[in-house]
């Protein structure tokens, strides 16, 4: 068992090194190259007959904000949901290729999705708090992972809510139903809920698409703060948002990665004409 894991790991390490090298060679990076948290290799994904993701190769960097943009149906949501295997909730999904997360292939069936999703938090398109109190929402994750101590839980609640910059707004009504909060507050609560299990990565699937501009701005500021401690991957429909908050941007089209580079490069000097067309609003 352990030897197997080791050999696998060494293979993964090699592949990681090679991609890192490629990365260095292909992009004239002036951003300091940090560690790579997710390394996607030749990922293909089918929904029954539909080929939704085609030969995806992407390396996602630690403690950065990676934005994924593209028109509807381009596979960007599918991709982010593959990163924590939520995509498997759809029956009939098949994948080939590998996604290495901390040097382990998460698409391997022996990789426990529960472990993966504990280390990789997710924030959804529509705020989806549980119909419970604010407190219960936050402690949901810790509790299912066996943390029962009341003092610890209290502490987690405060830390998480502070981390999501919503503590001051809700500290006096922790026992009230989360549905009493505004949409923007609900979304920040959902972020706090994801923080409660101290993940390494936070996946955000169009987290502001259901929010008003003011709440959107708050979430964007929050994302900037969070990237100090977390690697963040955000799918967005809104190109300005990607330009504002991300360090790197991947442009998806028809299930393929057209271009992946530093955000500045993508938005000022894209190398693919399709990226330019999309960014300048010619389609999508």
């Amino acid at each position: 068992m352990s030897t197997l894991a080791n050999s696998k790991m060494s293979v993964q390490l090699q592949s990681k090194e090679s991609t890192a090298n490629e990365q260095m060679e292909t992009s004239n990076s002036n951003v300091e190259t940090s560690g790579i948290v997710y390394d996607t290799k030749d990922l293909n994904l089918w929904y029954s007959e539909t080929h939704a993701l085609k030969d995806i190769n992407l390396s996602i960097h630690e403690k950065e904000v990676t934005a994924i943009i593209g028109p509807s149906g381009c596979g960007k949501s599918t991709y982010i949901k593959t990163l924590n295997r939520m995509v498997e909730l759809v029956p009939g999904v098949q994948t080939t290729g590998t996604i290495s997360y901390k040097n382990k292939n998460i698409l391997d069936k022996s990789f426990k999705v529960e472990d993966l999703r504990t280390q990789v938090g997710m924030v959804f398109q529509k705020p989806n708090p549980f119909p419970k109190s604010i407190y219960e929402n936050i402690v949901y994750g810790p509790k299912i992972h066996g943390i029962r101590n009341k003092k610890v839980l209290d502490e987690i609640v405060e830390t998480s809510l502070r981390g999501a910059y919503i503590w001051d707004e809700v500290k006096d009504r922790l026992n009230e139903n989360a549905y009493g909060l505004s949409g923007g507050q609900q979304q920040r609560l959902c972020i706090a809920r994801a923080l409660a299990v101290q993940p390494d990565v936070i996946l955000m699937d169009e987290p502001t698409s259901a929010l008003d501009p003011k709440s959107t701005l708050k979430i964007e500021e929050l994302v900037q703060e969070l990237k100090k401690d977390y690697s963040i991957i955000i799918v967005t429909h809104n190109m300005q948002q990607a330009a504002r908050i991300s360090d790197r941007t991947a442009f998806f089209l028809n299930g393929e990665v057209v271009e992946y580079d530093e955000t500045d490069t993508i938005f000022t000097n894209p190398s693919d004409s399709r990226t330019e067309d999309y960014i300048s609003g010619r389609f999508g």
Binding site: N84, M86, T118, G121, F124, K126, Y140, I144, R193, V197
Partner: peptide, 11 residues
């Protein structure tokens, strides 16, 4: 979306 939230937490 409620059960998705739960699965997303690693439940």
């Amino acid at each position: 979306h409620l059960s998705e939230a739960s699965y997303g937490m690693g439940a």
